[in-house]
């Protein structure tokens, strides 16, 4: 290389935005992201609020909180809650078994846990409806016991257990894996028995991730449609879920009514989102 090689540094004007990074492409990629996000998600979502706003406040309340709607919310939120609790228990056990134990078929179990993520919900729906119908494999065992699972709130709960399980397992699992042995050894060396170690040290350490998984499963359960409608029976006031109410209103071309119920559901979803973020922010305090 000769000494003549000159490096021309072009003086550039002050950029419109202060450059925050040496890596190029920021304006382009952020622009695409914001545009697509607005067109696909934000603007259409705002249509719900605008449509519902066409109703007067009293109309809105009458539609969104009619007796039938209230019954649907009770069922939806109740079943989602019970299902999340059931998943909260078995999700911890499943994560525990996957992280701590070796057993034949573990790899298969591990893959299977994600089945609800991969299986179309309608398929799960007709399979569960067939299984738990009075003449189905499981239903025929329950009928003599006087338990009617399908076409009942129990059926709704069963479907939501199916849908929610991986959320709990996959949220707890990495935290449990990262929980180092020495914390449990420390508890043992301080005189704690195995049970007190688990209840005082391990489970509290899993607490935030458990709550997050619970909230994710609950939130998913509230909105779930495909796996539920086949097993629910869809009887007004008894086994009709809130998302189905929206569809019924749509079929009657009552768009504003559908939007009103959607607003209530969205409000609950966003509340769940806030709670999840708050739990995670709280958990970060300790690490």
């Amino acid at each position: 290389m000769t000494a003549e090689t000159a490096i021309a540094i072009r003086p550039t004007g002050r950029p419109l935005f202060r450059r925050r990074s040496a890596i190029p492409g920021f304006t382009l990629t952020l622009g695409v992201t914001l545009t697509v996000l607005s067109l696909i998600v934000l603007i259409p979502l705002s249509a719900v609020a605008l449509k519902a706003a066409q109703l007067s406040p009293s109309e809105f309340l009458a539609v969104a909180f009619s007796q039938r709607a209230m019954a649907a919310y009770r069922l939806t939120f109740g079943a989602a809650f019970v299902a999340a609790v059931i998943n909260g228990v078995f999700g911890v056990l499943t994560a525990w078994a996957l992280v701590r134990y070796e057993f034949p078929g573990k790899a298969l179990v591990n893959a299977l846990v994600d089945l609800p993520f991969a299986l179309p919900t309608a398929v799960a729906g007709i399979a569960l409806a067939t299984l738990y119908a009075p003449n189905g494999w499981v239903g025929s065992l329950l009928t003599p016991l006087g338990i009617k699972a399908a076409y009942n709130p129990i059926g709704v709960t069963i479907a939501l257990v199916f849908i929610g399980l991986p959320f709990v397992v996959r949220t707890i699992e990495p935290v449990l894996r990262d929980l180092s042995d020495d914390v449990e050894e420390a508890a043992a060396s301080l005189g704690a028995g195995r049970l007190s170690t688990i209840f005082r040290i391990v489970l509290p350490a899993l607490g935030p991730s458990w709550l997050t998984g619970f909230a994710l499963a609950f939130a998913r359960g509230i909105g779930e449609y495909g796996s539920v409608i086949f097993i629910a029976g869809n009887m007004p006031f008894k086994s009709e879920i809130a998302p189905l109410l929206i569809i019924i209103q749509l079929e009657q071309f009552e768009y504003a009514h559908a939007a009103a119920i959607a607003v209530v559901m969205l409000a609950v979803s966003f509340l769940m989102l806030l709670i999840i973020n708050a739990v995670q922010a709280w958990a970060r305090r300790f690490s």
């Binding site: 992201t33 914001l34 996000l37 998600v41 934000l42 603007i43 259409p44 979502l45 249509a47 719900v48 449509k51 939130a219 509230i222 909105g223 779930e224 449609y225 495909g226 998302p243 189905l244 929206i246 569809i247 749509l250 768009y255 559908a258 939007a259 959607a262 559901m265 969205l266 979803s269 966003f270 769940m272 989102l273 973020n277």
Partner: peptide, 24 residues
């Protein structure tokens, strides 16, 4: 906030997801 907004569709019921396009 942007990350939260990108995640938003996960928290929206699929039925509501269909509804919004019907409304638009």
């Amino acid at each position: 906030l942007l990350i939260t907004l990108i995640d938003l569709p996960f928290s929206v019921s699929p039925v509501v997801a269909g509804l919004i396009y019907v409304l638009v």
